[in-house]
Design a protein around this nucleic acid. Structure first.
Lengths: 131, 131
DNA sequence: TTTTTAATTGATAACAATTATTATTTAATA
DNA sequence: TATTAAATAATAATTGTTATCAATTAAAAA
């Protein structure tokens, strides 16, 4: 039989979190995830959700978005992409466009660049309609 | 004499905050600002710093950076520019390079784009030396 | 299958950053 | 100088997140 090389157990709670996040394009905050999972696991603790998200992030299965300084948001899409953020409703939407972000060497200020992320700010169609 | 069209007073505390931020390129967090001002105003309250920063932001004299989800950082440079962020020490450095970030209309998902901001992640020269 | 054990859970306390509240003080105008 | 609305300082409250720990449980070993 296959040995579990990772030192973690597949608990029903963890499974539910993974399942909720799978193909999720909403960039949910921790509370969003919690509120959904608690319908299936009425006793789940918010701390459990936090711990699982931290773990899945460390395993590279999730990316944490630092958009807005308020809450942590998680993205199961770990491949490089950028985001559109609505200034009104704070909705986060993927933008699947590649940009050339090469920095001329003399502008790098000695940094070794590892990655990049663009946040586009604007008004989403729903909020535009309202105003 | 000139009337103050804005409904705010120029207090010594506010002046000190403005002065600290003027030409500041360090993207300080609230506590950094507080720690500096308190040397001149030993009785200043952290809440006063918060309120002033919020006000100056609303007046368009500062920009709030949402880099990292931990603390609020403020930037007196309100003209569009991007940032290099050190993954090790979390230092934030301006990058004065213009990028072409035009999004093809069909990729805008109905958003009206207002602005954009690029975060480049990497290792700063100081941290590179250490490791 | 049963036992063992280390990981995980849930409950809650602790914590850090920020915001709200309020009595007192003060800058700006009359 | 007197008036008054805005600002301050002190502190309580709130929010989001992390730490702690006893009880539980999934997975490896027996």
């Amino acid at each position: 039989m296959k040995k579990n090389l990772f030192k973690f157990k597949m608990t029903p709670q963890r499974m539910a979190i993974l399942n909720y996040l799978k193909d999720n394009k909403d960039h949910p905050a921790v509370e969003d995830i919690y509120k959904s999972i608690i319908t299936q696991f009425p006793t789940i603790s918010l701390a459990t959700v936090y711990k699982n998200l931290e773990m899945l992030k460390n395993l590279g299965m999730l990316k944490e978005l630092s958009i807005g300084q308020d809450k942590k948001h998680f993205d199961p899409n770990v491949s490089p992409h950028h985001h559109l953020i609505c200034k009104e409703c704070k909705k986060i939407v993927d933008i699947d466009v590649k940009f050339d972000l090469n920095i001329p060497e003399h502008s790098k200020k000695g940094f070794e660049i590892i990655g990049s992320h663009i946040e586009f700010y604007g008004i989403c169609p729903e909020c535009k309609k309202k105003s």
